[in-house]
Simulated scan of single mutants.
Amino acid sequence: MANLKELRNRIKSVSSTMQITSAMKMVSAAKLSKAQDAIQAMRPYSEKLTELLQSLSASLEGEQGSPYSEQREVENVLLVAISSNRGLAGAFNSNIVKATKGLINETYAGKKVDVLTIGKKANDILSKEFSVIENNNAIFDELTFDNVTVISQNLMDIFVAGTYDKIVLVYNQFVNAATQNVAREQFLPIQEIEGEDASVADYVFEPSKEEIVEQLIPKSLKVQFFKALRDSVASEHGARMTAMHKATDNATELRDSLKLSYNKARQAAITNEILEIVGGAEALNN
């Protein structure tokens, strides 16, 4: 009977775990719906604005150009690794860590590379091996454009100051609830458009190209950075919902297997007791 007690305890434990993972799945699904609507509404605007200003910036030469477009020999690189503050999201955080390490050890091998982390999970791992100059965990507590602007403005300032020659964002780009792609997106300098796409469409600029570049490019960069964080948040909820769905299915399968083992063991115990009773009765009759 000790075996039956052990099985009962395991069934109870697995059932409790299943309830937790199921609840977490529903919470993530609710949060995902809101985050998905936000990123899908923002993405077309951000991409079109970036495309327009990249093209416009490329058409200006020399001193007319934006300081954010300045191309330098790459010696100092800053990687902005965007993860989450919580786990239980499958490979969501580990993919960011892996991609960041790949950039440091392969793409920018031989360069001076620093890391700025957004999210506790990436910071916990990367800070043990690499130079992490800053970590921003609290930004996810209140993810607003104004709060994010403080970080993006700091990145823009240190680039203009010449501290870094290139700044790259590493984050999960939301595709759907089951799919998130790791993006390695150059934030600064603004990438030049080459080939046929480099020509500016037949726009009328008012007041002038130069003033538009001066005023809108900083805003465009802030929108681009905000979009990356929005993408990451939606990806996190999608990854966690998928992970908790699989965990719930696995817990259900394990619980059913344990129940079957319990019923078999209980049936065997009952059969043994019946045999003992019958054997005792026959001995008394003899």
Rank of each mutant, 00 (worst) to 15 (best):
K209Q: 11
D141R: 12
A283D: 07
E253R: 15
S22H: 14
L116M: 09
E106N: 08
V175S: 05
V113L: 02
Y203F: 10
E6M: 06
Q191E: 06
K101W: 01
G102M: 05
E63A: 12
T248Q: 12
N263L: 11
D157Q: 08
E214W: 02
T149Y: 08
P44Y: 03
K25L: 10
A177C: 01
T117K: 00
N176F: 09
N272F: 00
E253N: 07
F145G: 04
N176E: 09
I133T: 10
V150D: 11
V160E: 08
E134C: 11
G87D: 14
S69F: 14
A265I: 00
L32Y: 15
E142I: 15
N285H: 02
T179C: 07
Q215V: 12
S15P: 00
S33M: 02
G110I: 15
S13I: 10
I11M: 10
L143Q: 13
Q173L: 02
F159W: 04
S152I: 03
L60V: 02
D141G: 01
M18S: 14
A201D: 14
H245V: 11
N272S: 11
N272D: 13
R10C: 06
Q180D: 12
G102S: 09
A122Q: 01
F174V: 03
I277Q: 08
S94K: 08
E196K: 04
T163H: 03
M42C: 05
A2R: 04
E185D: 14
K121T: 07
D124C: 03
E211M: 10
R230T: 12
N136W: 15
N154P: 10
Q180T: 09
D165H: 09
T107G: 04
V77G: 11
M26N: 10
N9K: 14
N285T: 15
R240H: 11
A177N: 02
Q173D: 04
I217G: 12
F145R: 02
E134F: 12
K246L: 08
S83V: 02
T271S: 03
L49Q: 04
L126S: 01
N285Q: 03
I158S: 06
N285K: 06
Q153I: 09
G195Q: 12
F145Q: 08
I190C: 01
F130E: 04
A269D: 04
K48I: 15
S33P: 07
L188K: 03
A161C: 04
K166W: 10
R10K: 09
A122S: 00
K111F: 06
I190K: 01
K31M: 13
K259Q: 06
G280T: 14
P218Y: 05
A138F: 02
E253P: 00
A201T: 00
G110C: 05
D157R: 14
M24S: 06
A198V: 10
Y164R: 06
N272C: 04
K209C: 08
A177S: 08
S199I: 00
Q54D: 07
F140I: 10
I274D: 06
A178K: 03
D256A: 09
D114S: 07
A38T: 10
Q191L: 10
A183P: 00
E196H: 06
A228T: 00
S220E: 13
G62I: 14
V27E: 13
S59V: 03
D146Q: 07
E73Y: 04
A23V: 15
F130Q: 05
N136S: 05
D165C: 07
A283N: 11
V160G: 11
I270K: 11
Q173I: 00
I270D: 13
Y164W: 05
S28E: 08
F174N: 12
Y171M: 03
Q186T: 00
R86S: 15
